[in-house]
Structure formats: C-alpha cells, structure tokens
Design a protein around this nucleic acid. Structure first.
Length: 339
DNA sequence: GGTAGACCTGGACGC
DNA sequence: GCGTCCAGGTCTACC
C-alpha cells in the first residue's frame, strides 16, 4: 500500500537512538523500537484514522551511524493528507521532545556535567498528554512486566488498527465508553479499571470543550509552560488513581523536571548506587536533598543516573528489544544482583 | 497529620 | 499443576 514520506528537522544535537530510547515508555505498546534497523515504529491516531508510522534518522553518506541533528525520515503505511501530516508532525514533536532546543540541553549539561559527553538530556514520552497519564496509572503498584502487559492489552482490545493491522493507543473517547468490568477482564488492569475510565471521561469532556462537565480536563492548560508547577501538581493529585508519585512522574512528562517521582526503585538506587542507609522514608528524604542542587533539572540528573545503571546491566537501551529484554526486567532483579 | 490495611495481577517458589 | 507468597502506589478509615 502506498504511503507518505516526509522529513522533520530535529534540534542540532538530536540523536534518535539515544534520545528516543531514554525512558521506559519507549518499550510500551504501541511503541516498538526496531533494534536491527534502529528505527521507531508506532501506530498514531490521526484525523484520517490510525496510521502506522516508521521514524528513522538519516545516516551520513560515509557511515552507518546517524550524526546529531540529521533529519528524521517519516514513513506512513497509508496515504496522508495535509491535516494528517500536520497532526502527525505535532505528535512526533511532542513524543520525541523536538521542541526542546539544544540550548536547553546545554543548560542542563552546564549544571550536571556528567552527561555532556554522552549528550543525554531529552526524555521520550507519549504523543499525547492523555496517553502519558494512563501509562503512568498502569505503572503504579505493579512490576514492569505487568505494566507492559496492560499497555499491550489496551492497544489490542481498544486501539484502532492501521491498514497494516497494528493498533494505536486507545483514545480518551474510546476508553470513556468502555465498561470498567470490561477493562478489568480484557485488559487486566485490576482495580485501576474505574479510575482509568473516570480519567478518560474527564479528558473526553475536555476535548469536547464541555465546560459543564465537572472535572473536565483542559490538556492545553497542563501543557502550557506558563501554568505554575504547583497548580499543575495539585490538579494532578485531584485525578483518580494519581497520588504523589504518579503526579510527580506526570510532571516530568510535562517537561517540569524540578520534582522527583520517588518510589521503591528510587530507594533501591539510593542504597545500591549512592550508598545510602536507613529506612525507605529517610532515604527518600536524602534523595530529595541529593538532587536539589540540580534545581529545575533535578529529574534529568536522577533519571540518567538510574538509566546508566540499567544500561550497565543490560547494555545500551537502543539494543533492548521490546518483547524480550524490555518486557522482562524488574527492579527486584536488579536489587538481587551485585552492582 | 500519620498509619494500617485493602485493592489486583503476574511471577517466583515450594510441593 | 496447584497453592502460597510477594512486589508495587493509591485510597480510605481510623486514631
């Protein structure tokens, strides 16, 4: 089937295999990182319907390895019109954080020089705020393999298929129309069923512009950098299924890096990598103090430390296959291994 | 304000 | 193959 081809020019320091494989969500359906081809594949929801998209960074003429800032080649599995391409471009920019200029990453490297050489600084996320929120809910109170399973089932059961047959992440409207019991039974989300449907209803109401629906979510307000951090955090805490950890994690997904989403894995990191001792509560307090000097970049410093530990154990993230390495490792495995 | 226990699933383990 | 235990963050009731 004939598709469309176009290119996006990323920031001058951008590397797809490094910056696209920088956070666990790149391993969750409908995302798939093709290790062999070093390209990102995913079905996007566009005005004209679901569409499988392959994103690959152009190589240099004399090398198999892309150079920073090389164009991103976008290929779709069906023809796209101008509306489709505009929306696709918008979602890719959000997902890959192409709107973060090289200067912002340089400012982070000035504050935390450990990552200047590798160039790490951007964190991949979802094409939409809604998907980031749901993915965060599915990551709470479960081990990583369960998070992988829930996201796979959400796509398989509720996601629209592209012409090739690969499914997108379900829209807020689709989940809002789903019965909680069905979500629990078919997607294995457990007690999160009602909470996920409630969140989806609020997003769906916000997308319809329904001001009369209590709690309707105005995604643009959350995404607006001018909205104060504290107000965003408080609003997130008011969503069902979102507690302090999930709210702080969604904050970083919104590009607000000052807060740390600390969980049991953070405590493990504090103990095994940073040599901290004491109760989990005291370690979490010390972790906050430890990363405080990195101010508005605190999460980046924390996360790339954690990510470097994972890569030390499992190899570079761009070699992790979603359905093998990427779906099996757990924090408890790392805790049991020697550093 | 702090804390205990329930919530649900999948994986590990013992038999 | 079956039963039991455990990890994981949020929510509610209770003090």
């Amino acid at each position: 089937m004939p598709g469309s081809n176009f290119a996006i020019t990323p920031p001058t320091d951008y590397l797809l295999h490094r910056d696209g494989c920088s956070y666990g969500y790149f391993l969750l359906h409908p995302n798939r990182w093709d290790v062999e081809r070093q390209q990102l594949e995913r079905t996007f929801l566009l005005p004209g319907g679901a569409c499988l998209v392959v994103i690959r960074q152009a190589r240099a003429r004399t090398s198999d390895v892309p150079e920073p800032g090389n164009p991103l080649r976008i290929k779709t599995d069906r023809p796209t019109d101008a509306d489709d391409r505009a929306e696709l471009r918008r979602q890719i920019v959000r997902m890959l954080r192409l709107d973060e200029p090289a200067e912002t990453i340089a400012a982070f490297h000035k504050l935390d020089k450990r990552w200047k050489r590798s160039g790490r600084g951007r964190l991949v996320r979802s094409p939409t705020f809604f998907e980031d929120v749901i993915k965060t809910v599915t990551s709470c109170n479960v081990t990583w393999p369960s998070t992988v399973h829930m996201n796979r089932r959400l796509c398989e059961v509720l996601g629209d298929p592209s012409p090739t047959g690969l499914r997108a992440f379900p829209s807020a409207q689709k989940i809002a129309r789903t019965r909680p019991a069905s979500l629990r039974g078919r997607c294995r989300v457990g007690y999160r069923d009602e909470r996920i449907v409630q969140i989806a209803k609020r997003f769906a109401a916000g997308e319809r512009g329904s001001k009369r629906t209590p709690g309707a979510i105005d995604a643009a307000w959350f995404e607006n950098p001018r909205t104060p951090d504290d107000e965003v955090y408080e609003a997130l805490l008011n969503l069902p299924g979102i507690g302090p950890y999930a709210a702080a994690n969604i904050m970083q997904l919104l590009g607000r890096y000052a807060r740390l989403p600390l969980d049991t894995e953070s405590v493990r990191h504090g103990k095994t990598v940073l040599g901290m001792t004491g109760s989990p509560t005291s370690i979490m307090k010390r972790l906050h103090d430890h990363y405080a000097p990195f101010a508005e970049h605190a999460f980046r410093s924390y996360w790339f430390e954690l990510w470097a530990f994972y890569e030390q154990k499992r190899g570079p993230a761009h070699t992790w296959d979603r359905d093998t390495t990427g779906s099996t490792f757990t924090a408890s495995q790392f805790a049991a291994e020697k550093v």
